[in-house]
Design a protein around this nucleic acid. Structure first.
Lengths: 358, 358
DNA sequence: TTGTAGGCGTTATCAC
DNA sequence: GTGATAACGCCTACAA
């Protein structure tokens, strides 16, 4: 079918090892034959078989990336960063989606193992202890992006954003604007999580992701630093989607003493909330100041433009891949100077939080 | 390093071929030894080496997917459809981004060739004749998603959305609402394209993508069916991004006789235009009705919610992969009953186009 | 500077 | 039923 090194050898009247050396630009080949072979290879349309090479070399120059959903703009941007720096270093990327389904995620890992990836990057997964064990079995370095894990794996490292700090930034901003009654709208409620999933916690009686918990913790901290204690009535459930924001607003506005500001788990929630607020005829930020989280591309086109906490997304993918590269070079052991990294987001102030209250 | 069938063979005191057969569930192995081997394999943590297998089998069960940018929500959704149906059929996906850069795209294809993918799916590329030749050289079936190509390749097939029909839907809708002066805002201006790129055309003196051309053609057709001829002054350049929509509005509003409606190349453009319109104090749809294209997730949260043409995106990815599967089974030749498919989008009416004019 | 031989982990084709 | 043996395409000692 496709032309191999032997075919070239035959055509060039040399042995296949000479061809192999010539194509690898080895100094052990005369310039003359090298040129001849290179010409022939090009002319015959030779393409080296990466699999055969990997088989003998012991590395595939391939990393596996497993995501919950590539449709998530956040994840898509991370993957883009991964793919680009992977490509720059001669690596390619096998993508596997899990849909946040545990079974599919395990299947994906198994398939990547069979494909003998040199490393694995997992984004936005809830990694329980059981699962982490499964990853370690792989024998290749694993980098967790925004996945909460109990640290300390020999092979697994993590890179994540400082959700607590982000939550703190958002709420402190609102406090500085004079707000005291500040609501928090959560993200998607987890399904009843197994106890082994130590990474999730319970708020309002339902499980939420650790991201959510941490953002809430930052929120609470900022409040307490201002001498305000968190009013449980002001923590209401969202869904992570726009619709959830709308419902949250309804719930908040039915309160005897509604909040003057709301910090939302993410931008989609905030946008849904803004949308609902308009329908109720509320003035933003006059009646309610709103802050989101993520800085999705549309945040600046919301009405009014949304104040939010931007995550260093493009950087995360790059850093994750660089970390994987370093680990892979290190002979797969994390013995080097590599450690988990936590990146901080930054507050982007737009009109939805408004000017300082007088 | 990792355990092979030979290791299992040694442990089970059989030959490696017996292990191979047992693991393949061949009827040529006694139930007893089969059970013993399976148990051992599991216990020893055996994982078959997909590369070694591919080497002898001649197929990798892998498809390459090259995209311009996975960040594009449209593309992300297509890729998700591809990955899912690929997974359902035992295939995995190698992802490569090109950034719409010709060099990188060719590099990606070359890398996928080396990885011996069984098929290739390329999205949103401008495929010139030269390039198509390059793809054919691969010797594996190629499916083009929303990439304009001159048809008729032996190995390349395409699946795309009917842009002309979509444009026609949008403008006919505006006409039915009573509009007569309807602007069209283009997408990104292509760099000066090589003549071999027959797929792009020139509008306003700059090259635009064939998508753009086709949407414009549908627009023009709808106008002409209503007895209105296209006013060149009402075709203004955008960039495909929100900012371009803003600039387009400025240009349109400076006209002696501004339009009463605008159809935009895509939703981002439309959203930028809406944003700019608000700053100018225009009423939407009172002063200007607006229609977009794509139905991005935020379209319904724009202010006012955006009327747009929804593309059958999730379906596209699935269909593309199914087509690739069919082609790969067909022994790589498109001799079967497979032909290009063109999917139609549908109009989603929201407030930005408003009620019927009286 | 070049050729020979062996092996990477599989599957497949023979014999036994 | 099972075991040698030969591929698949490549790299790499070791020999010449």
């Amino acid at each position: 079918m496709s032309v191999s090194i032997k075919d070239i050898a035959r055509a060039a009247c040399v042995s296949h090892s000479t061809v192999s050396r010539a194509l690898a630009d080895s100094p052990l080949v005369s310039a003359a034959t090298k040129a001849r072979i290179e010409h022939l290879a090009h002319q015959m349309g030779y393409s080296p078989d990466a699999q055969a090479r990997s088989l003998v070399m012991g590395r595939t120059m391939t990393v596996g990336v497993v995501v919950t959903s590539i449709t998530d703009p956040f994840i898509a941007e991370v993957v883009q960063g991964i793919e680009r720096t992977a490509h720059d270093h001669g690596y390619s990327v096998i993508l596997a989606g899990s849909g946040a389904d545990r079974e599919r995620e395990l299947a994906a890992v198994e398939m990547l193992r069979s494909k003998r990836v040199d490393g694995l990057i997992v984004t936005s997964s809830r990694v329980g202890s059981l699962y982490q064990h499964h990853l370690e079995r792989l024998g290749v370095p694993v980098v967790l992006v925004n996945s909460h894990s109990q640290r300390g794996g020999r092979y697994t490292f993590s890179i994540s954003v400082d959700n607590r700090h982000g939550g703190w930034l958002a709420t402190r901003h609102l406090i500085e604007l004079g707000h005291r009654r500040i609501a928090y709208v959560t993200g998607p409620a987890g399904r009843a999580a197994a106890p082994s999933l130590g990474s999730a916690g319970t708020v309002l009686g339902t499980y939420v992701s650790s991201d959510d918990q941490d953002r809430l913790a930052g929120h609470r901290q900022a409040l307490e630093e201002a001498g305000v204690s968190l009013d449980p009535a002001l923590v209401v459930p969202g869904t992570g989607a726009a619709r959830g924001g709308g419902r949250a607003l309804a719930q908040l506005w039915a309160l005897d003493s509604p909040p003057t500001a709301a910090f939302c788990y993410n931008d989609m929630t905030a946008i849904g909330l803004l949308h609902a607020a308009r329908r109720l005829g509320l003035s933003i930020p006059g009646d309610l100041a709103v802050v989101g989280f993520d800085d999705v591309p549309f945040a600046s086109y919301a009405l009014p433009p949304l104040t939010t906490v931007a995550q260093p997304v493009p950087e995360m993918g790059q850093r994750a891949m660089e970390m994987a590269l370093a680990l892979m070079q290190n002979g797969n052991s994390g013995e080097g100077a590599i450690s988990d990294v936590v990146l901080r987001g930054r507050l982007i102030v737009r009109q939805s939080s408004g000017a300082r209250k007088s």
